[in-house]
Amino acid sequence: MTEDNPFTPTEPSAETRAETGGQRYTPVDEIPDVAPSKELDWRTRIVAATPTAWRVLKYGVAIAVAVLWIVPFVGLFMASFRPLGEIIQGWWHLEGMTVTLENYRRAWSYQTAPMGRALFNTLIVTVPSVLVVMLLGAMAAYPFAKFEFPLKTTLFFLILLVMAAPPELVAMGNYNTLREIGLFDTYMGLILVHIGWGLGWVVLFLRNYLLGIPKELEEAARIDGASRYQIFRTIILPLSTPALVSVAVIQFTWVWNAFFFPLVFMRSPELYLAPQVLPLMRGRIQVEWGLMAAGSVLTMAAPVILFLLLERYYKRGMVAAVAD
């Protein structure tokens, strides 16, 4: 009779029932919120917690490689805090280590071109170069991404050409131009060169980003009566914030780190930029390692801190800038 009853649920075979203790369904209420701690002896636990040998090896190699990669910077950092005598013995010898700020003090007021002044000069050049490139780059990128206009392909080609060109190629022309207009050996001259040089990649980078902004947003704004300028200011700029941050970080790093342009266009020692001062610190006979290291640490601090803070934008921007 039971067999015929259509309302008797199909039960699992008696065998299965026995194995699971007759409890077929687990009520929802019985689900614990966290994994039940398994009733295992400590030996089993250790085995379970130990990753496979292969993974351990992988971690070992990975960490070794990463550490190897920063060893030179560790050395530089250590050297910047130690007297020359100890550095020559090898910065890796830690016994009897003297920590001193003497190197930083000397670098800061280095006689030919004090580092303090040089860092200030670098900042004066870098900030406008970054801000102006962002603004002009975003403005130029907008029509590149959204409108058709004559000469577009030509301009596009020129941008690519400049991106491939070495900075040495524009040095001669810019040298003569800046002399002509009286901006040679001035902040302004160097800033202009940096802006002109940076615009190429910034326009291309922002254009690629803007291509991804849906047209509907602009059309909606247009129907709401916004002019092209208003659309740019209220729709395009706010939406490209992530890309603009990437541009800012990368362009800042490049301008700050640039060595060749300052070398060519900045000739007065009081206008020297920080990267320019560093090779001068080598000294004549005995290399002044401590001084040089301290100067290097001061110079690289800004881009490195910026990278660590905005790592995400930096990496994303780097990948996007070259992958496009």
Binding site: A66, V71, G90, W92, P279
Partner: peptide
């Protein structure tokens, strides 16, 4: 790990050159 390996790319290349000078120095070089 990636940031450690990538760090060198954010440092001014002139510093990279000086670091190499330091690394390869006969006495002080690691």
């Amino acid at each position: 790990l990636r940031s450690m390996v990538f760090l060198g790319f954010t440092v001014p290349t002139i510093v990279i050159g000086l670091v190499l000078l330091f690394v390869y120095d006969p006495q002080a070089g690691v």
